[in-house]
């Protein structure tokens, strides 16, 4: 076991995957000598060379579109989109092409490609360096969406993503890159896609979260525990395919469900979780299915007072838990 930061786990896993399989390449903006703007690929250019760690022009559609083509001709590209906010020029390639390739060719072609992108606010990134974009892509059948919250999961899920035969969007909360540390064992372990984890067992309220919010949910659970409220935290880890079984069995046990996400509340990813719980655990519910989510403004504002107002934090989650507990 070694204590690693979130970004170290990601960087070292990419290096290991590239050593293990020469079909794995990295493509993105500044991923070469600079090692990426967050240093996620630091040192990989030196080890693997410019043929396998490819600096691209500022062309997100090209990064994804050529990764799709390369994936169809024997490679396993890891595409880096510098900020999730900049993924939108590639939306067509992801949604019309990568997501549909296997279905539309009746299993003739697949796209084994992993798209990594840092997302999320709370880092003074303002409107265009703070976005959460998971809902756009989790909506689309044919795309897998992964959001890890620990270095252990980041390494295990990234390995599973790179080795998966279908396109995976791997979103990393940028605030966690250096602030989150955790034990990462050596060796070639996998965390399977599509499996949630119960990170804090409890009996009275289920809180469902992912990414940075999975940490904040744990902090909130500790706060309300002192007030006698027992919270079970489910860290989804993979948003699609969704581990419905873990979600529903937890809610059926506790009878109450709070969904937490940083993205705008309206039609955010958590709305689907609420809908599934309402439809499939109705008989077990002892209160409304509720949400704590980002406000419905078009972006995270820059000024620190405004940014603090926008961001979901442990205190806001704890308040949501208390209200739900009162039912």
């Amino acid at each position: 076991m070694a204590l690693k930061t979130f970004i170290e786990a990601i960087r070292e896993t990419m290096a290991e995957e590239m050593r293990r399989d020469e079909a794995v390449i990295i493509m993105g903006e500044d991923v070469g000598l600079k090692g990426g703007v967050f240093l996620a690929t630091d040192g990989l250019f030196g080890e693997f060379g410019g043929d396998r760690v490819i600096d691209t022009p500022l062309t997100e559609s090209q990064i994804i579109g050529t990764s799709i083509g390369a994936a169809m001709n024997g490679l396993r590209p890891i595409a880096e989109i510098q900020f999730a906010d900049f993924i939108h020029p590639a939306f067509n390639q992801l949604v019309s092409e990568a997501a549909r390739m296997r279905y539309r060719s009746n299993n003739g072609f697949g796209v084994p490609m992993t798209v990594r992108a840092p997302y999320g606010g709370g880092v003074h990134g303002a409107l265009y360096h703070s976005q959460s974009v998971e809902a756009f892509f989790a909506h689309v059948p044919g795309l897998k969406v992964v959001i890890p919250s620990t270095p252990y999961d980041a390494a295990g899920l990234l390995r599973s993503s790179v080795r998966d035969d279908d396109p995976v969007l791997f979103f990393e909360h940028k605030k966690m890159y250096r602030s989150v540390r955790g034990d990462v064992p050596g060796g070639d372990y996998l965390v399977p896609l599509g499996k949630a984890a119960i990170t804090h067992p409890g009996t009275q309220i289920t809180v469902i979260a992912y990414g940075l919010m999975a940490h904040y949910a744990l902090e909130a659970a500790d706060v309300v525990a002192e007030e006698g409220i027992s919270v079970e935290v489910v860290d989804l880890r993979t948003l699609r395919p969704l581990d419905k079984e873990t979600v529903l069995s937890s809610v059926k046990k506790t009878g109450k469900c709070l969904v937490v996400y940083e993205d705008n509340r309206f039609l955010g990813y958590g709305a689907e979780i609420c809908s599934i719980v309402a439809e499939e655990a109705f008989d077990y519910l002892d209160g409304p299915v509720t949400r704590i989510a980002g406000p419905d403004v078009p972006g995270v504002p820059y000024n620190h007072v405004l940014e603090d107002w926008f961001m979901v934090n442990p205190e806001k989650i704890a308040d949501g838990i208390r209200k739900l507990a009162a039912y």
Partner: peptide, 18 residues
């Protein structure tokens, strides 16, 4: 959209020396 797929196929051909 197929433009970039063909370019990506060509990239893989070059990297894999096929």
């Amino acid at each position: 959209t197929q433009m970039l797929h063909a370019v990506g196929i060509a990239l893989a051909a070059k990297i894999r020396k096929t």
